[in-house]
Simulated scan of single mutants.
Amino acid sequence: MNRTIGTIVLGYDPRQPWHRSQIRHFIVPPAPPPAASTKPNGTDRPPMPAPQFTRETVVDRLLGAFRRYGYDAASLGQLSSATGLGRSSLYHYFPGGKEDMARAVFDHVDDWARDAIFAPIHASGPPEQRLRQVIGVLDEFYDGGAKACFYGNLVVGDAGVLFKDRLSASLRKLIEGFARLAKEKGVSEREAQQRGEDAVVRIQGALIVARGLGDPAPFRRVLKRLPNDLLG
């Protein structure tokens, strides 16, 4: 332990020589450590509780942010606000930053499509019935045309280059799914492929127009006509 030695001079007379008896040494004890704060983290306010979100919840909120802002325009501040997480927490979930977040949303949407769209398409039963089920799912997912398409927001700018292969694979799979239903109705393979492409083009285009107009009517109209356009 460190100690400080001091000296006290007793009975000092400038006319007399120093004398040992006139000098006293003493030890200064070390200062006690500062008292620990009674407040958490040494502050006067309790810390804010860390938000407890599952990764699935965070990814779902990121989907909403990318739908709203797109990929290129979405800032880390906006993504942080949308998820309710600080930037450091976002990087804890997604060490690769925004690109990692977008890839997680891709996985999330692909998982949703596998269960909600492609499972009914590959199920048994009349094609008309299965298509109606898919249409209902799309109507709910896009909130009747009020919500933008995640894929559509990622085909422009740097995202269109960065995620080109992933976007192409997802869109092709949807086209093939619609084409499968058309072929089951007796449509030729070539015609069924074209009808599948047309279906995706109309859905995506209607979402863009509906958002631009602030009116979901174009999207709803496309969904209403889809059974006849694809299977008629």
Rank of each mutant, 00 (worst) to 15 (best):
residue 151 Y to N: 08
residue 132 R to W: 13
residue 150 F to W: 10
residue 138 L to Y: 13
residue 99 E to D: 14
residue 136 G to F: 13
residue 116 A to S: 13
residue 116 A to I: 06
residue 122 H to G: 02
residue 99 E to H: 11
residue 106 F to T: 03
residue 122 H to A: 11
residue 152 G to D: 04
residue 121 I to V: 13
residue 150 F to S: 00
residue 141 F to A: 05
residue 129 Q to Y: 01
residue 146 A to G: 01
residue 105 V to E: 04
residue 138 L to Q: 08
residue 104 A to Q: 06
residue 142 Y to L: 06
residue 112 W to E: 02
residue 114 R to F: 14
residue 104 A to K: 09
residue 104 A to S: 09
residue 138 L to K: 06
residue 103 R to S: 02
residue 124 S to D: 14
residue 111 D to I: 08
residue 127 P to N: 15
residue 148 A to G: 07
residue 151 Y to G: 12
residue 98 K to H: 15
residue 103 R to I: 11
residue 138 L to G: 05
residue 107 D to H: 13
residue 149 C to W: 09
residue 141 F to N: 09
residue 143 D to P: 06
residue 111 D to K: 15
residue 127 P to H: 11
residue 132 R to G: 13
residue 123 A to L: 00
residue 145 G to T: 04
residue 100 D to P: 05
residue 139 D to C: 10
residue 101 M to Y: 10
residue 148 A to S: 07
residue 148 A to E: 10
residue 99 E to M: 09
residue 131 L to G: 10
residue 124 S to W: 01
residue 147 K to C: 12
residue 99 E to K: 08
residue 142 Y to A: 02
residue 120 P to F: 09
residue 149 C to V: 01
residue 103 R to Q: 05
residue 119 A to I: 12
residue 116 A to E: 07
residue 147 K to T: 07
residue 145 G to D: 05
residue 112 W to T: 00
residue 146 A to V: 07
residue 124 S to R: 12
residue 109 V to L: 08
residue 124 S to E: 14
residue 133 Q to Y: 10
residue 137 V to E: 14
residue 126 P to M: 09
residue 143 D to Q: 15
residue 134 V to R: 01
residue 131 L to Q: 02
residue 106 F to M: 03
residue 133 Q to A: 11
residue 101 M to R: 09
residue 115 D to C: 06
residue 143 D to G: 03
residue 120 P to T: 11
residue 142 Y to H: 15
residue 102 A to N: 04
residue 115 D to Q: 15
residue 105 V to I: 07
residue 135 I to V: 07
residue 117 I to T: 00
residue 127 P to K: 12
residue 128 E to G: 11
residue 110 D to F: 05
residue 148 A to R: 15
residue 115 D to G: 09
residue 129 Q to F: 00
residue 121 I to P: 10
residue 148 A to D: 10
residue 111 D to A: 15
residue 148 A to Y: 04
residue 137 V to H: 06
residue 105 V to M: 09
residue 108 H to V: 03
residue 139 D to R: 04
residue 117 I to E: 02
residue 123 A to K: 01
residue 151 Y to A: 07
residue 146 A to F: 06
residue 108 H to T: 03
residue 103 R to G: 03
residue 143 D to F: 03
residue 132 R to H: 12
residue 109 V to D: 02
residue 103 R to Y: 05
residue 142 Y to M: 01
residue 121 I to A: 09
residue 100 D to E: 13
residue 121 I to E: 05
residue 131 L to P: 08
residue 149 C to L: 05
residue 145 G to R: 10
residue 123 A to M: 00
residue 147 K to H: 15
residue 123 A to H: 08
residue 130 R to M: 15
residue 124 S to A: 13
residue 144 G to P: 07
residue 98 K to M: 14
residue 118 F to P: 03
residue 151 Y to F: 11
residue 120 P to M: 08
residue 121 I to Q: 00
residue 134 V to N: 01
residue 115 D to F: 12
residue 110 D to T: 04
residue 103 R to P: 06
residue 143 D to T: 02
residue 125 G to N: 06
residue 145 G to C: 04
residue 112 W to P: 00
residue 136 G to D: 11
residue 139 D to N: 03
residue 145 G to W: 14
residue 125 G to V: 07
residue 139 D to Y: 01
residue 141 F to S: 08
residue 112 W to Y: 08
residue 103 R to L: 10
residue 134 V to E: 03
residue 151 Y to C: 10
residue 101 M to H: 11
